[in-house]
Design a binder for these strands. Structure first.
Ligand SMILES: [Zn+2]
Ligand SMILES: [Zn+2]
Ligand SMILES: [Zn+2]
Ligand SMILES: [Zn+2]
Lengths: 178, 178
DNA sequence: GATAATTTTGTTATGGTATAACAACTCAAA
DNA sequence: TTTGAGTTGTTATACCATAACAAAATTATC
């Protein structure tokens, strides 16, 4: 697990805040390998590369975007290739699907069982995963009150992230002073 | 507004519980007309019929399923027809989109502003809309804590509804006693 | 190591969801 | 009655996802 502590300001990669995104990638890949070994699963070339490509940013990646990237690198370019890789990564809990975007996102907490709760920025399209045990418990209770047995949750919140809100405020300030 | 109080047991229409579904339909259509008049919007034939068809059950309807039904009745059968109707109904708040199903559902509370929170049964595919102000408030607070300004929410919970859970329990009981 | 079983990948085809772009029509206001 | 806005018709296309079966690679068993 190579940890590069170089401080990068890689806005094109689409992160939510300034952070060392290589660390995100390294951690995710290391976790993936550990989990696959533990569970006797095979992290093949195409699966591993798909995971890396999804982790290029904190913006969800569409299946066909991923397919194009894989094709550029010489992988087979038919849809089943990418959907199989996605299915594997989803089943292994290494990625999430963002339903409201039909796109896929690396999971930073693959090593612990959890539901994906997402904050999606309308502006920069970065997605932050958050865990809110209180809300989860409240949802279970609410469902149970109606006799409903909860199995899965799709919690996707959209709006403006802190960075984009700051930028919008700045732009407005420039607008009024000009 | 024709209220038929005939008690129907219309399981094929896909309701969550026994109820007079004509009442759901009548109320929804009446609300739609009122809202459209208030807002100077035109509930044209195709829009109105689309809304009625979506309200045939409490199961979300896919765009192409809707398109087929409209086509049967002599409406234009090209996709834009149905997507335009859906866009109108969505914008008017008369229907919701269930993102995890790519399907559309009549809204029973179109007259008051609200977010759609859904309980989706994996078995019968009925969807119940529920409103849980506490959870909404908690989500806003949670987002705000991260500097995130919340705009829209996709809350879709899947599992087993009370009816289907009861049926599953019955079936299991028969299985063990046999 | 050879063989068989299992998993993964290749390949072709198809189905399902959604929008772009522009022409024609309808309706209400000016 | 022209004008203009909104709505609908029409064709084409883009994007998302899976079915079905063949071939190859990996693993297990002999
Ligand atoms: Zn990162
Ligand atoms: Zn943002
Ligand atoms: Zn009903
Ligand atoms: Zn059910």
């Amino acid at each position: 697990m190579t940890k590069l502590h170089s401080h990068q300001h890689d806005h094109d990669a689409g992160h939510a805040h300034d952070h060392n995104h290589n660390h995100c990638i390294d951690t995710a890949l290391a976790t993936a390998e550990t989990l696959c070994i533990e569970q006797g699963q095979r992290l093949t070339k195409v699966r591993r590369r798909a995971l890396e490509l999804i982790w290029e940013s904190h913006r969800p990646l569409g299946a066909y975007q991923l397919l194009a990237k894989l094709a550029e690198e010489g992988f087979n370019s038919a849809p089943p290739t990418v959907y199989r890789a996605l299915d594997f990564l989803l089943a292994a809990g290494l990625i999430h699907k963002v339903e409201s975007m039909n796109a896929y996102l690396g999971c930073a907490h693959a090593d612990r069982a959890h539901k994906g709760y997402f904050l999606i920025c309308d502006e920069c399209h970065n997605v932050m995963e958050f865990d809110y045990q209180d809300i989860h418990a409240a949802l279970i209770a609410k469902a149970a009150k109606q006799g409903f047995e909860l199995r899965a949750e799709t919690i996707e919140l959209t709006g403006l992230c802190a960075d984009c809100k700051a930028k919008a405020t700045d732009a407005a300030a420039v607008g009024t002073s000009a």
